[in-house]
C-alpha cells in the first residue's frame, strides 16, 4: 500500500481527527460560549466606565481623536447600527461561504427629513431592575403579556448607546433554558444585518402583529425572531419552539 504524499497527509489528518473526536470529551459549547461572552462584555464595559480622559497620556488622546474621526466616517445617517456593521464585515469575511446575511430596514412613517447622526457617546451596559429601566428610558418598554407559565425573570440589562438610544435585554429562565428578549429604540429607523450559518439555519419570513419578522431556526434548537414595532427593534432568542416564540412575540405590544 504505497501512499502518495497527498494520501499520506489525508490519512494522518483523518486519523487524528477521528481519534481526538472519539477520545476527548468537549465541554458543553453553549455553556462555554456564555462564559466567553460574559468576559467579553466585562472587558468592553470596564474601560468605558472607569477611564477618565484626563488621566490618559498624550498618545491615547491622539488615538481617541483619530477614532472619533474614523467613527464619523463609518456612520450612515439613517442607520443606528452602521458602526457595528463595519466590524461585522470582518466576521462576515471570516465565516465566509457558510454564512448568509439578511438585512431588515425599518423606516419610520413620519420621516423626520434630514436624518441625524447618532452620537454614540459612552457605551455602558449594566444590570438593573425593571423599575429602574422604566425610570431611565423615555419610551414605553415593550414586555410580553404571555410567557410559558414556568418562566421567571432572570436578569435585566440596559445599554446606553448615547443620544437617548437604549438597548434593553431581559433574560427569562424557563426550566433549564434561557430566553432573551431584546429591544432598542430607533427613532429614525434602522437597518439590521443578521449573519447566520446557512448550513445549520433555516429562516422564515412571518408577520407579528402586522409587522414583518424573520425567524432564524438553528438545528441546535436555538430560535431567533427579529421584528420591529413602534420604533423599537425587537428580538426574541432562546431554545424554545417555533409556536412558543411566535406566541410570546405576538403578546408584545
Amino acid at each position: 500500500m504505497a501512499l502518495s504524499e497527498i494520501e499520506l497527509n489525508r490519512a494522518i489528518k483523518d486519523y487524528l481527527s477521528k481519534e481526538l473526536d472519539k477520545n476527548i470529551e468537549v465541554p458543553d459549547i453553549d455553556n462555554q460560549w456564555e462564559k466567553i461572552k460574559q468576559q467579553i462584555l466585562k472587558t468592553e464595559t470596564i474601560p468605558t466606565t472607569q477611564k477618565s480622559i484626563f488621566k490618559q497620556n498624550r498618545v491615547a488622546l491622539v488615538i481617541t481623536i483619530l477614532l472619533s474621526i474614523s467613527t464619523i466616517t463609518f456612520l450612515h445617517p439613517n442607520n443606528a447600527n452602521a458602526f457595528g456593521g463595519k466590524i461585522a464585515k470582518i466576521f462576515n469575511y471570516i465565516i465566509g461561504k457558510t454564512s448568509n446575511n439578511v438585512t431588515e430596514t425599518y423606516q419610520q412613517v413620519d420621516d423626520p427629513g434630514i436624518p441625524k447622526v447618532q452620537d454614540l457617546g459612552e457605551i455602558i451596559e449594566k444590570e438593573v431592575s425593571l423599575d429602574e429601566v422604566h425610570n431611565m428610558i423615555s419610551f414605553k418598554l415593550a414586555t410580553p403579556s404571555y410567557l410559558p407559565h414556568e418562566a421567571n425573570t432572570r436578569r435585566v440589562f440596559i445599554t446606553s448607546h448615547g443620544a437617548d438610544v437604549y438597548e434593553i435585554n431581559i433574560e427569562y429562565n424557563v426550566n433549564d433554558k434561557v430566553i432573551v428578549f431584546s429591544q432598542e429604540n430607533v427613532p429614525y429607523g434602522a437597518s439590521r444585518g443578521s449573519l447566520y450559518d446557512k448550513d445549520n439555519t433555516v429562516i422564515k419570513d412571518i408577520m407579528i402583529n402586522g409587522n414583518p419578522a424573520i425567524l432564524f431556526m438553528n438545528k441546535n434548537g436555538m430560535n431567533t425572531l427579529n421584528w420591529q414595532s413602534r420604533s423599537l427593534l425587537l428580538q426574541l432568542k432562546g431554545q424554545i419552539s417555533e409556536e412558543e416564540i411566535i406566541k410570546i412575540a405576538q403578546s408584545i405590544k
Binding site: K37, F83, Y196, D197, Q235
Partner: peptide
C-alpha cells in the same frame, strides 16, 4: 442587536464552529 450585540452574535457563530 446594535453595536456589540451584532458583533457578539457573529462571534458566537465563530466560537461554536471552532
Amino acid at each position: 442587536m446594535s453595536l456589540h450585540g451584532n458583533n457578539l452574535d457573529l462571534f458566537e457563530i465563530l466560537v461554536k464552529q471552532n
